[in-house]
């Protein structure tokens, strides 16, 4: 019996969301009194033994460059084989872009119940019950998993990365590599930007900013804070900002430590994508804007007057 954590990686590094999954998997393993192992498919620059810091005892790797191109069908077959040969009873992965494709395939393949979007460790006192966000963050569900093998896909930024001083044993594992059916032909990444889904801080702008030419202050504040940028739906629909910045019920969902909203009214559909943020700040000139009801801190004021002062003040704080 063991907990097996699927370690996702990109550009030679382990994704932060997978460090969270490893920390979660290790804590779950000690809760269950079993071992915590990791599985890496593909090649990395990062030192895998460092996953011991998150509490993994052993990391199994299939060193094969071709696996860096993600085909969820191919990888589901491999993870399933690893689960069987290692005798894992729980698989933990991040519910990130990779996990959303891999988790369900693995679930159907192993007939293992999947909790997609877990936000806390399972309650194993009576059965196996995992909390997840539902109704776009407006509620939580307790999901009971009844199959012998369980799969947990952990919401990014819902569980903190543990940083102990362990060292994981790293070993090659021999798994059948099925032919890939998906070929990656090009990657289009915005260089130097923090991916929204992994960001701890997010600065977001709405239609109140009047036009794309006014996004300088959003970008400057984000830059100073090391935050990602986001926007409301009409902003993306009007092509002021790229689609991937659109958050809300029909865009991306984020749960950063800080969501800093400027000129956004806070419509229910927008809140649905951001309501799990730990701290929400709202800058809006309308005191009746619904967003204030969901906020922790706010300023009723004109963004064009307030934001430059906030930026100056953050500069001072950061010693710039």
């Amino acid at each position: 019996m063991s907990v097996l954590v699927y370690i996702d990686h990109t550009d030679g590094e382990i994704k932060k969301s997978s460090l969270e999954a490893a920390s979660y998997g290790a804590q779950l393993a000690s809760q269950l009194g079993v071992a915590a192992h990791g599985l890496v498919l593909g090649t990395l620059n990062a030192e895998l033994s460092a996953l011991g810091k998150q509490g993994l005892q052993k990391v199994h790797q299939v060193k094969n460059d071709s696996l860096n191109q993600f085909d969820p069908g191919q990888q589901a077959a491999m993870v399933a084989e690893a689960v069987t040969s290692l005798g894992a009873t729980v698989v933990v992965l991040s519910n990130n872009v990779t996990g959303k494709a891999l988790g369900p395939r693995l679930s159907a393949r192993l007939r293992a119940g999947l909790v997609a979007g877990a936000v806390a460790l399972p309650d194993t006192g009576n059965g196996f019950v995992v909390k997840k966000a539902v109704f776009s963050g407006k509620a939580f569900a307790q999901v009971a998993v009844s199959s012998p093998i369980k799969i947990i896909a952990l919401t990014p930024n819902a569980f903190s990365v543990s940083n102990g001083d362990g060292n994981a044993e790293v070993a090659d594992i021999n798994l059948t590599v099925p032919a890939a059916k998906i070929k990656v032909t090009g990657i289009n990444k915005i260089k130097g930007q923090i991916p929204l889904s992994e960001a701890e801080l997010v600065v977001s702008g709405g239609r109140g900013l009047k036009g794309p030419e006014n996004w300088g202050m959003i970008e400057e504040l984000a830059d100073l804070l090391g935050a990602a940028t986001a926007c409301s739906r009409p902003v993306a629909d009007s092509h002021w900002r790229p689609h991937h910045e659109h958050v809300g019920q029909t865009g991306g969902a984020v749960a950063p430590n800080l969501y800093f909203a400027v000129g956004i009214s806070g419509a229910i559909q927008h809140l649905a994508g951001v309501n799990r943020s730990k701290v929400i700040v709202v800058i809006n000139k309308d005191p009746e804007a619904p967003f204030f009801k969901a906020a922790d801190y706010g300023i009723v004021g004109d963004a064009f007057e307030v934001m430059p002062k906030i930026i100056d003040s953050v500069k001072k704080l950061k010693g710039k």
Partner: peptide
């Protein structure tokens, strides 16, 4: 993908 997009063929 995180922070961007990927073109694929299948």
């Amino acid at each position: 993908i995180e922070g961007g997009e990927e073109n694929v063929e299948t």
